[in-house]
Design a protein around this nucleic acid. Structure first.
Lengths: 343, 343
DNA sequence: CAGTAGAAGTAAAACGTTTTACTGGAAGGA
DNA sequence: TCCTTCCAGTAAAACGTTTTACTTCTACTG
């Protein structure tokens, strides 16, 4: 590797001069010298060592985004928002995919925290047992931001959140108003706060409308297609009657749809299905799935902005932001009057 | 930030000792001292600075994977394979998503190359104009590997490739053998080598079977759903008759499917559709789309293994690997005899 | 008792930059 | 002529580690 020293030698100047020129701080370096340096840099194909640079500047200009499942378009949107914001601010984004594995998530956090990136954005996956890491990071003033990860113990961490309770409430209400009484619910992985909140919204709606909560209709999913499929199959096999199903995210709703189809059910005539997230999926099902839109991209932009403020040492204008969700009717629900109940 | 120096002072030992203990090189440090050091490290919440460490070891133990479109499940699979291989080898993977933007890709390469990562895996997106960067990297011995990116100018870069020509040939042959003569083709972005090869396979099959190549049936897509949709719509609107459509990847095939459905076409009765990649999509369409399976995960594992070898300074056993593809019939094609030709 | 080996540790260089505080000389002004 | 200012540039410290080569002491061997 060619270093700045070699450039300096070859140019017959000091390394200070080279450094200055290369960093555009050469207010008092003659044009000839500058030119000569640039020429030699080109010639020797010199690439400054960012690691050495970071050591003295204490900056990498990189941030990391930790996501549980990059194949979920919801997180792909988050990634895009974060990336865009980074790029327009001279930062770079490293994406870290944990595959919903706590250990992997933690390992990433541990590694990244060693100053490899200037800060991180962490999405979902709660793992209370590891909250201590965040407390340490908070103590040592390491900049990080949450997206959709809430913990009472970590109230002071800036974050960006969807109004999950309200969202789940309103989509459940939609089903109730169509006359549904037996509404199945697929949770997300209960290690995440949003999975809890969505369940809470569902429960609250049922309670407010004086409908019983049937624990048998509530099943634990994993926010993935296969989970939605499996749990719905299980529900259908058990023959507990239900006329609507609320999957905590769209991916599971897809799985539920598939399971229902295989069971020969017409959607929405025989079964209403709703999801959550409003992900942009190429899946060409008909009808598409009614859902709650979460402004993932905007949330990511906001989270990144907050993080960058933190990195610059500024207190961000808002450090906790809640986003309202929007009901998107795509036709996968129907009034119960039309329901031809399946056996 | 607490440094190794502070730990050393608080323990009343030299920093050498601390470093040794922390790196498990303390073959000759007494157990008491070790224990004391660990206690103080814990107490002060010391996190070694990876940047400083990297500077002397010249290693980061991180590699980067650059992908054009992380929302494409094909690349999500690649990412998983790479990540897995990294983790089992004590490395970490940073994912960089370029959104198919050459400039962004290049910026990433430029930044990463400054020793922020020990090497990189670069997938698709050719941009000949920038090949010079790779030549430089080759010259300076910077470790990198291609997945599905081929350039004659860069023959010496190790890489892992799908047998695109053969694959495209055989799936086209499948259509021809069903009696199709007018087979539309949606290309990928022609800045990628694999888009070219798939087109070549298609052409070759037509030629071998003495079928004319109709340029009007070949349209340039972008490997995304919207591209498949748009180009298929355009084809259908032009009323140039075709009875089969070969989309260069599954994402575009989804778009094509959607377009065809909107046109009221039955699939496969009125239009046979095939894709490429065999991505694992939740889209619950029926029939699913016949495709060529590319062993993305395995390819990524291989590419990562090669890269890690390179990083360790070993010459990898194989530095250019071609993977055969497998035809997967999912029922989206039908013999032409059944085709009720659309107007 | 001299010599040696091992145990437990240390001082200092090195990694490749940036940055702070300085220097030598030329030009300009009084 | 002397003083000041500006220009063009430099030396050296600093960043936080790892690593090489060394030291000191104790215990053991013959």
């Amino acid at each position: 590797m060619v270093t700045i020293k070699e450039i300096a030698e070859k140019c017959g100047v000091s390394i200070t001069t080279v450094s200055r020129v290369l960093n555009n701080k050469g207010d008092s370096i003659s044009d000839q010298t500058k030119e000569r340096i640039f020429r030699v840099v080109e010639e020797l194909n010199y690439v400054p060592n960012a690691v050495a640079r970071s050591m003295v500047t204490k900056r990498t200009n990189n941030i990391a985004l930790i996501v549980p499942d990059i194949s979920n378009p919801f997180f792909a949107d988050i990634a895009k928002g974060a990336e865009k914001t980074c790029v327009t601010n001279g930062f770079h984004l490293f994406l870290c995919n944990t595959d919903m594995d706590k250990e992997v998530e933690n390992e990433y956090i541990r590694v990244l925290r060693k100053r490899l990136v200037d800060g991180m954005i962490i999405t979902t996956q709660n793992n209370e047992e590891y909250d201590v890491i965040f407390e340490e990071m908070l103590d040592s003033n390491y900049p990080f931001v949450f997206i959709e990860r809430y913990s009472d113990k970590l109230k002071n961490v800036p974050g960006v959140f969807a109004s999950n309770i309200e969202g789940a409430y309103s989509i459940t209400k939609h089903l109730i108003e169509l006359g549904h009484k037996d509404i199945a619910f697929l949770t997300g992985p209960l290690v995440t706060s949003n999975a809890h909140y969505r369940l809470e919204g569902y429960r609250k709606a049922l309670t407010d409308y004086k409908l019983p909560i049937n624990p048998e209709l509530i099943r634990n999913g994993n926010y993935k297609v296969d989970g939605g499929y499996k749990e719905t199959k299980a529900l259908l096999r058990k023959k507990i009657p239900f006329t609507a199903l609320f999957a905590s995210n769209d991916l599971m709703a897809f799985g539920a749809y598939q399971a229902a189809k295989e069971f020969g059910l017409q959607i929405p005539e025989q079964l209403s299905i709703v999801g959550f997230d409003n992900i942009n999926m190429p899946g060409v099902i008909e009808p598409q799935i009614t859902t709650m839109d979460i402004p993932a991209y905007d949330m990511a932009v906001k989270a990144t902005t907050i993080l960058l403020d933190l990195i610059e040492g500024q207190t961000p204008k808002e450090s906790k932001v809640y986003y309202p969700l929007q009901f998107i009717n795509k036709g996968s629900t129907a009034p119960i009057t039309e329901v031809k109940r399946f056996a």
